[in-house]
Design a protein around this nucleic acid. Structure first.
Lengths: 201, 201, 201, 201
DNA sequence: TATGAATGAGGATTCATTCAT
DNA sequence: CATGAATGAATCCTCATTCAT
């Protein structure tokens, strides 16, 4: 693994970390496994990230970017209709989870909630990185909400930001449920609820 | 710590474990800390629970009972009105979390989601114990939902069980949010959403 | 290694540590070697001493006791004459070093100076333990000095405490020299100088 | 750090190494710190010195030269009187140590004794380099001793070489003491003793 | 020659668990 | 049944050193 730029190596480490932390939790993965899975020496990992915790923070940051691109941006590019965009987001998430489930019979839940819940009381930095990621995702929900409301005048008294945080909470909740119930369909059910939130609140 | 029946000792261990796992996650607590906090010798723990994992399972089971009693039963005893009962549940949860927050500046989240999310891919037994706990809580939401619907005929197309699982998901979500955002008020916001779910779906 | 009281085990660890640190320096010995040499599991060492540094501090303290007993007390018991007592001290040290030299062709120097010089800028605790050990030894030199002066009125202007610290420094110096020169006889030469200090200053 | 001759680079490395080894011991400094402090890439160090140990040997050799020049030669140039020369040596050493002590509150001891004592049983090459350095310094003490004796006929029975090695030992001892006691004045006290050795033995 | 990047071996320390009494 | 003491296997991390350009 020597013919790589420093940044490429960092990315390789982070992508491996994202995957393993997602699958087996932060404490469930050790730096040995991480280095082996990344095809890199353990010491190399430490030249890129000075501690496991720092690596986790960077992994959350990179996961934010990847999720933004592959889940939210593609959902938005596929349609301009806010309800459809919302459904697309859930579809994207569902496809990923179902395909893992089909080959491995596991549901991994939300990578952000997973590591956030595990480390929130231990690592402020990880907690903040997760919150920051959620901030990014909320912008998309905000767009959806305001677009929807602009097009459909309702008699709702809810504020936009209440809808937005409900949408975020709903995504987190359905991913937690899918993990605990080992049932990818929980994500689809979450999609229905999300539309309910948008339309009926 | 010698003048105790076997069961009393077990309960002392479990209550300690519930508290510590809640505060610092499963991997964040070791058997040393656990035994010290329980005022018992480490080896004694192993005479009551043959492994840390088994202890975690039993802790989840006991936490289920305690939550049922102190959160749900008291909420139901305080009122017969389904909406009020729902609000009471959230109030009970909120009070607990706010008082911890006031003295320790931390939000601990949902003990079931915490350990479930951390161990779901590692320990089937813990995962199942969490799911079983949720099953108990869902019965209360089921009662609330059917009571509410019996009293208020709506034109909703949602099934009862959809409402019920939305209510459970909503509780989990607001506790996760309160933990990640370090904001007990997220639980109150969850209460508002719960009522929304009940009334508007 | 299980049929031992906790204190016996601690002593076994410390005696092993004294020996190994003396032979190979603090950084030159790792906890693996230490545990193997002590016939104990590495984790057992950590149940007795919470860190390598703390172990080093305790080792210096125990080495102080042993040196006091086997070097200074025996030197004093063998004679009441101050000059002879001084010579006895050096003889005791010399015998130890020469016998090691004869079997292993090495000179280990002064265990206190060795570890003190190695760690003085790193560990205040070790530095203080060494200084405290020297304080114990100085009491013997003080006895010798005042006894000698009581018996031999000289026209010297030196203060007792100047003689005492010169005697301590001389012992340290000759042990350093014997180590660096790989020559146990340097200790005998130190003995001659010590007598010079006592008589001619 | 590219516009430098090979020798200049070597010297920069060695001067950095002398300083760091003096401050933090051989094992207390790693090649990373060394390269950073020298403003050079770590691999560059290895092109100049094939191992850390070889670097240490070269550092001791260079430290010998520097000490000879800045401590002993200047002491000799400042006076022709042997007692004064001896005092000058200690003054030079004292000034260096006191100024470090004033800015950093530490006493670093003797760089030769420090590394010699740390590595004598590990590295014959370092041990020999230290001994060789001492040989250089002893020539100055030899000059002082014979000059003094030529000018002051005494009834002493000591041989010149005994005085010389006592003077060397005394310097080492007072530097060790200053380090362990964190007291630069120990060097001044050593100066008094050195004069005692010269005059009264 | 110089350097950015990588690495195998080893460092201190901690873990869940078990033994002997 | 309870406990003081011990342990094998890991855990995170660091080290001196080397490679490829």
């Amino acid at each position: 693994m020597k013919d790589m730029s420093k940044e490429e190596t960092s990315i390789q480490i982070l992508d491996t970390a994202i995957d393993l932390f997602w699958r087996a939790s932060y404490h469930g993965v050790n730096m040995n496994e991480l280095s082996r899975a990344a095809n890199l020496n353990k010491a190399t990992l430490y030249q890129h990230f000075s501690s496991k915790e720092k690596l986790a923070v960077a992994a959350v940051e990179r996961a934010t970017l990847r999720t933004q691109t592959f889940v939210f941006d593609t959902a938005f590019e596929a349609s301009t209709n806010p309800v459809q965009r919302l459904k697309n987001i859930y579809q994207n998430v569902f496809h990923t989870h179902r395909s893992i489930y089909e080959t491995e019979s596991i549901c991994l839940g939300c990578p952000f909630v997973n590591i956030g819940v595990e480390l929130a009381t231990t690592s402020e930095d990880v907690r903040k990185a997760v919150i920051k990621g959620f901030g990014v995702f909320q912008e998309y929900y905000e767009q959806i909400t305001s677009d929807y409301r602009a097009a459909n005048d309702s008699n709702s008294t809810s504020l936009n930001k209440e809808i937005v945080s409900a949408l975020l909470a709903n995504m987190n909740a359905c991913l937690v449920a899918s993990k605990l119930e080992k049932r990818p369909e929980a994500i689809l059910e979450g999609s229905v609820r999300a539309v309910n939130i948008l339309k009926h609140w």
